[in-house]
């Protein structure tokens, strides 16, 4: 898989800024850098990336996968040795990820050039602890290091987690400030790769803030995880957070799902019910390749008017 290298040799790893990236934006870059690799992260999505993605995707793919494809193409044009596309099977015990995540490395392999290898650890919490998965990945990347390999990997893992944790704590702290503020609050519900990709969500957060609303994002909420009926890891997380936040003083909830998302088509309904039961205004939005904002703005404006 990974060739032998000495400590002096630098490997360049490309990380697409899409899908799984947004789940752990700090962990992987730090981990690789600590192991002496240089990291290139593709820039935030822009039109060119989206267009390349759409052009080179299978029509039936969901929008986020098309976006990922675009980022992969961007990185393939850069000088990289490895393209990081993990095979994510499950991010929680007794849960499963979206089936499309299972096949991402294969998708990447199909489009990439021969010189670029796909770095694709299998992440499956049902079978192996995450630290073990990361360790074996680190082990293969340090193949050829003379000494202290064990120590280097351990330190890299620790520091990477530290960074990720800090960022999460920052988010949670921000949440506590927000929930205490007197402004009207709206919670945005979606997957991190829709919430934080401003090109895809047409800057929805900014648009709401301009209307004088405090915007909470669902993944920044600090509530303990509890199992739900859903076997999907991210759906369970979303449902859980939604249930908790619906008990707080919020003015409305907006759910964003991407066109063609199979999991969302099921979960959407259950999320809506949580807020409906509490009589919290709820808006469901669908995002797609189209860049015309008119439809989105109409719905947002009308929604803000109903809150008034």
């Amino acid at each position: 898989m990974v060739k032998k290298r000495t400590t002096k040799e630098k490997l360049t790893i490309g990380i697409p800024r899409a899908l799984f990236y947004y789940k752990k934006p700090y962990f992987w870059p730090t981990f690789f850098e600590e192991l002496g690799c240089s990291v290139i992260i593709s820039p935030p999505t822009q039109r060119e990336i989206l267009e390349t993605g759409c052009k080179n995707s299978e029509i039936e793919s969901c929008l986020p996968v098309k976006v990922l494809q675009g980022h992969i193409f961007y990185l393939l044009d850069k000088k990289i040795d490895y393209l990081f596309v993990p095979r994510i099977i499950s991010l929680r015990e007794n849960h499963s990820s979206c089936p499309k995540f299972f096949g991402l490395p294969d998708l990447a392999k199909l489009v990439s050039k021969k010189e670029v290898k796909i770095l694709s650890p299998t992440i499956d919490f049902n079978k192996e602890d995450f630290n073990k998965t990361a360790f074996w990945l680190g082990w293969s990347l340090t193949n050829g290091f003379p000494l202290k390999r064990f120590k280097i990997i351990k330190a890299a893992y620790k520091n990477a987690w530290q960074k990720e944790k800090q960022a999460k704590e920052e988010l949670n702290k921000n949440y506590l400030n927000q929930i205490e503020s007197l402004e009207r609050k709206v919670v945005l519900i979606s997957h991190p790769y829709n919430l934080y990709d401003d090109f895809i969500n047409l800057k929805i957060k900014e648009k709401l803030e301009k209307n004088g609303l405090e915007v909470l994002t669902i993944d920044a909420l600090p509530f303990e995880f509890q199992t739900t009926f859903s076997h999907w890891d991210f759906a369970s997380e979303m449902l859980n957070q939604a249930k908790e936040i619906s008990k707080r003083a919020i003015s409305g909830a907006i759910q964003i799902s991407s066109f063609g998302c199979g999991c969302d088509s099921v979960i959407k309904e259950f999320i809506e019910r949580i807020f409906r039961e509490k009589k919290i205004p709820f808006l469901s939005l669908m995002i797609d390749e189209h860049t015309a904002e008119a439809g989105l703005i109409t719905r947002l404006e009308a929604f803000v008017d109903t809150l008034n």
Binding site: F259, P281, F282, M286, T298, A302, D305, T306
Partner: peptide
């Protein structure tokens, strides 16, 4: 007399 909810056709 107050709009409490609305929906529009999707795609």
């Amino acid at each position: 007399g107050i709009v409490v909810d609305f929906a529009m056709n999707a795609i």
